[in-house]
Write a protein that binds this DNA or RNA. Structure first.
Lengths: 163, 163
DNA sequence: TCTTGTAATGTTATAATATATCATTCATAT
DNA sequence: ATATGAATGATATATTATAACATTACAAGA
């Protein structure tokens, strides 16, 4: 590894600068393509989320926004977050009432998460929507799934080892 | 059908009195077996949840509790709910910050839900925990899943037909 | 029976999360 | 340049949830 900064994500180290920059570039390109406004505020919120690889509450994000002089009232954070979530740059973790940057920005996916209750790390996993066929109940009853939430709480490998 | 009252659950009619009574009896028996206190308050909250086959917020439940003269402050409702959730008599729907009675009280299960965004009906489906193997990510990384949240938002058959 | 420990409930206050509303600014396209 | 809609600023408030401490109920042992 030749990174300046490296953080553990899940259990692996990675070049965080590269990871952050790549995600920002991807978002930029996507917004360009679909004529969305990737404003300084929205960019900053995404950067904040990318900086940590864990879920941040809206008010924690708001505090960080304040520090950088970009907005200070709840709606500012919530609007930016809902933009990011709507376009797949971030996800909401319902169990935590918190938000994470998308870890799979290139791939069309329904997100799925593993949340370590010890270190609070949130790891995004790929999930096919078919993995959520609910034992056939959905198709059997004619329910039309539009969006799924899959969140697993547990203990990650490194936390398990410590104990 | 020979029921006095019948409500639609998902898309099917069912004998609601029987269903309610059966669930209460099951909870009673379970509490008996494990020396848990199925107090009037807890019973009432479970009855409230069983009465509706949809998710109720804690404050909606609290209003109904108040009407029946059993407690009137938030902690009262939240405590009863956390007891019911802890022992599997009810579940929390994270996406809605709301609670539903368990529809599969006899079966050990990780709950999964289909939530109609039009009629707000919540249908519980059986889900094997293996359906949440997250494309192998969990096992690959050594993450130990303890609890899963599976919630699908969409449109139920009857609401889809109306449109 | 007493008393003592524990669980449940009552009560007050407040924390944490989220949105409605209206004013203002900014970007863009004609 | 100017009209239009999108984004942000700002104030207020709604909604969801818990902390902390007091009181009551109840079962088990002295």
């Amino acid at each position: 590894m030749t990174s300046k900064t490296s953080k553990s994500v899940g259990f692996e180290q990675h070049d965080h600068d590269v990871c952050l920059e790549k995600a920002i570039k991807a978002a930029e390109a996507y917004c360009d393509r679909f004529k969305l406004q990737f404003t300084p505020l929205r960019r900053k919120v995404l950067e904040i989320l990318l900086e940590e690889h864990r879920a941040l509450g809206a008010y924690a994000i708001l505090d960080l926004l304040r520090e950088s002089g970009l907005g200070s009232q709840p709606p500012v954070a919530y609007r930016a977050l809902s933009f990011l979530v709507e376009h797949g740059f971030a996800h909401k973790i319902e169990r935590l009432n918190a938000f994470v940057a998308c870890a799979l920005p290139d791939i069309l996916h329904s997100p799925a998460f593993m949340i370590c209750r010890k270190c609070e790390t949130v790891v995004e996993a790929q999930s096919s929507s078919s993995s959520f066929d609910l034992s056939g109940t959905a198709s059997a009853t004619g329910f039309k799934i539009e969006q799924t939430t899959l969140e697993a709480k547990g203990v990650c490998h490194s936390c398990a080892e410590m104990a």
